[in-house]
Structures are given as C-alpha cells and as structure tokens.
Simulated assay, not measured.
Amino acid sequence: MPLFQLLLLAIIQGITEFLPISSSGHLILLPGLTGMQDQGQMIDIAVHVGTLCAVIVYFWSDVKEALLGLPRLARGKADTPGSRLALLLIVSTIPVIIFGLFLALTGLDDMLRSVAVIGWTMLIFGVVLYIADRRGDTGKTTAEWSMKHAWILGLWQAVALIPGTSRSGITITGALFAGYERQSAAKISMLMSIPTIIASAIFLAGEVIATADAAAARDGAIAAVFAFLSALIALTLMMRLLKSVSFTPYVIYRVILGLFLLWYAYIYGASIPETA
C-alpha cells in the first residue's frame, strides 16, 4: 500500500478514535469517497492497536491500577479501587461483544456500511450529543462510576457498532446523560475503549495474521506507529480543551458532515464496497 495512504489512514484513525466524530465511519468513507484502495482488516487492526497504545500511555496510572486489581478480582473480590475499576471495564464491554457477534453472524455489519447510514448516524447522534452536553452534566466524577452506569454505558457503546455513531461520542453522550462532568465522561469513555479495542482486535486478528506477508506486516507496523502518535496528540488536546470548551465544535462538524453525506448518498445513490 502506498506510504501516503498508510499515513493518511493512521492520522485519520488517530485523530478520530477519541474525538466524538467516528473513526470507523471515516475509515469506511475514505476509500468509498476517494476511490483509494480499501485498506483491509490488517491495517484496520494495526491502526486500532496504535490508538490502544495511546490511551494506555495517557491513562497509565488508571490502567496500572486496574491491572493490579485483576488478581484480586479473579478471586471474586472487587473491594479495592483497582479491582473495582477492572470489574466496571469488563462489565461495560459485555454488551458490545454480544452485539458485535450478532452483527457478524447475521451479516448486518456489511449491510450497514453505506454512506447513507453514516450520514444519518453522524447527524442524529451529533444532535443527541449536543442535547446531552447541554442538559446532562450534574458534576459527577469518575470516582462515582457505578455498576449500574457500567451496564448502561456498555449498552450505549454497543450502538457504536453502527458505522458513523462514534464509540467515544456515544459513550460520552451516555455518561453526560448519567450526570458526569465533561472530563470525567471523556475519561470513562477512553478507559472503556481499552477492553473494547482489545476484543475487536482479537476477533479480527486470527485469519488476518495467519495470511499476512512481510509487506503487510510492515505496512501494519507503519500505520500503528503513526496512529499512536496522532492519537496521543488528539487525546491530549481534547482532554485539555474540555476544561474550557464544550462538545459543540464536534457537534457542528458531525452535523455538517452528516448533511453532506446524506446529500451525496441520495443524489448519487452511493454505497461503500465491502472491506477487502
């Protein structure tokens, strides 16, 4: 794959994975709207691994605490901050795994890969994010994250398997509606991405890695490194901006892009080809 396309894919994934504007939607749209070669699952996995590393680095203290809590959780005890965090992250991942398997087994995941679907989800969930940002925040922090809210946010996260929804956007929306303040909502969303990305990579990796050659492995490594760098920069900027800026700029972007995609889809009857 050309180096320019690898870098473009990595930068798009890195920037959009943690911003509430849908990384999967942008990755699907790139070949569909530009005529570029579809990147395939190998590159998709690689860029997701890159962004996974970025969120682990950024939230290392929390990740370390959860990892240290796993042995205690394995003994059936969730009475420390680390074991409790690990339990909440596991619980919040269950709905997306179940829904993901359902979409894969029924073939609905391929049917949803269309410009029109991405246009509608960009528009609708952008408006929902705006409403949540204006009405939901009651000042709750990550320390108040509960089992009930882990299940609820897990259900919100499952909806993000519909292209264009945005995993970070929908979980931030759910957290805002649950009363969490902006930075805490974003932090919970980012931490939830860790087991979700790991589960997604495992689900897709077996066949892809078995059939990968040296060139594909090299392309994947390049994409992963640049996705990591761009994701770390985007994540750092977003978390800092949330101290003084609302989610409105992201909502505006989603609405404009959604309207454009709907115009494009219904004028040209555009659809996205299946992933190679």
Rank of each mutant, 00 (worst) to 15 (best):
D137R: 13
A86M: 13
A10T: 02
I118L: 03
G154W: 00
A231N: 03
R254T: 06
L161C: 08
D79S: 12
W263L: 15
L108Y: 12
G40I: 02
C53P: 05
S168R: 02
S246D: 13
L129G: 04
S230C: 11
M1Q: 02
L85P: 01
L232S: 14
L153M: 11
S23T: 09
G32I: 02
M1V: 03
T80L: 09
I118N: 01
L232K: 12
T275E: 08
T138P: 12
G126W: 00
A270H: 13
R135A: 07
S24L: 15
D110C: 06
I222P: 00
T211E: 10
A270E: 09
L7N: 03
A205Q: 05
L88S: 06
G136W: 08
P95R: 04
V255Q: 03
L7C: 03
D62C: 11
A150I: 00
I45P: 00
A54T: 08
R135P: 05
L87R: 07
Y130Q: 12
L68Y: 10
P195S: 07
T196K: 01
R182P: 00
L191G: 00
W151Y: 11
V96A: 12
L191N: 00
A160P: 03
L85V: 14
A150N: 06
R182T: 04
L153N: 07
H48L: 09
R84A: 02
L3D: 04
R135C: 15
G258V: 02
L30Q: 05
V117C: 13
R167V: 02
I98Q: 04
A116Q: 08
G136T: 12
I252D: 05
K243T: 09
V57I: 12
G164R: 04
T248E: 11
T196Y: 02
L8G: 01
L204M: 07
L191W: 04
A224S: 13
G82M: 13
D109P: 06
E274V: 12
T196Q: 07
H26A: 02
T51M: 07
F102I: 15
F228R: 01
G179N: 08
L87I: 10
G179M: 11
G76N: 07
L155A: 10
M192W: 05
F247I: 11
R182S: 02
V159D: 02
A74W: 15
P195V: 05
K148S: 15
R167W: 06
I11C: 14
I12T: 09
L108D: 09
F102W: 11
V49D: 01
